[in-house]
Amino acid sequence: MKLLDKTELAALLHIQPQSLPTTIARKPDFPQAVHPTGGQALWIESEIQAWIATQPRGNTNKRGAHMRSS
C-alpha cells in the first residue's frame, strides 16, 4: 500500500498543493486521509486512483484547472 503526501496527491490531481484543502472540501466523497503516526496527513494511493476513476472527464476546479481522471 503506497501512501501519498500532499505534494504527491496534488501532482496526481494536477493541482497546486495549496489548493488541496479547497478541492477536498468541495468533494464530499473524496477519500479520507490517514494519520499513521498521528501527524502528517497521508492518502492511500489506491483509494485516490479509485476515486479519480469515478470522476467525470473534463472535471474542473473553481479556477478552471482541469483535474485529470486517468
Rank of each mutant, 00 (worst) to 15 (best):
T7R: 14
N59D: 04
T23P: 07
L4F: 10
G38A: 08
Q32K: 04
N59V: 04
K6L: 06
L12N: 05
K62H: 15
R63N: 09
M1G: 12
R68S: 03
L12P: 05
I24W: 05
G58N: 03
T60Q: 05
T7P: 13
R68N: 04
P56G: 04
A25F: 13
S70W: 05
R63P: 04
Q18G: 12
I48P: 00
L42C: 07
V34F: 00
S70P: 04
H14M: 11
P31E: 02
M67Y: 07
W51N: 01
A25T: 14
T37K: 14
H66Q: 12
V34P: 00
H66Y: 15
A50Q: 11
S69P: 02
T7E: 14
V34M: 00
T37R: 15
P17F: 11
W51V: 02
D29A: 02
A25K: 15
S46T: 11
H35N: 04
G38I: 09
Q16C: 12
H35G: 02
T22H: 09
T54F: 01
D29P: 00
N59G: 03
E45D: 15
A25E: 10
L12H: 07
L20A: 07
R63H: 08
N61V: 14
H35S: 06
D5M: 12
G58W: 04
E47P: 00
M67V: 09
A11T: 11
N61G: 13
E47T: 00
N59A: 05
L4E: 03
R26K: 11
A50D: 12
W51Q: 03
T54N: 00
A25G: 14
T54E: 01
K27I: 15
A33D: 02
A50L: 09
H66V: 12
L4I: 07
K6I: 09
N59F: 03
L13A: 13
K6N: 07
T60R: 05
P17Q: 07
Q49S: 10
I15P: 10
Q16I: 06
P36I: 09
T54R: 01
G58S: 04
Q32W: 02
T37A: 14
W43R: 10
N61I: 15
S19P: 13
D29G: 01
H66T: 12
R26Y: 06
H14P: 11
R63W: 06
L42G: 05
S69N: 05
H14I: 10
Q18W: 12
K2Y: 14
Q55F: 01
L20G: 12
P17S: 06
A10I: 14
V34A: 00
L42S: 04
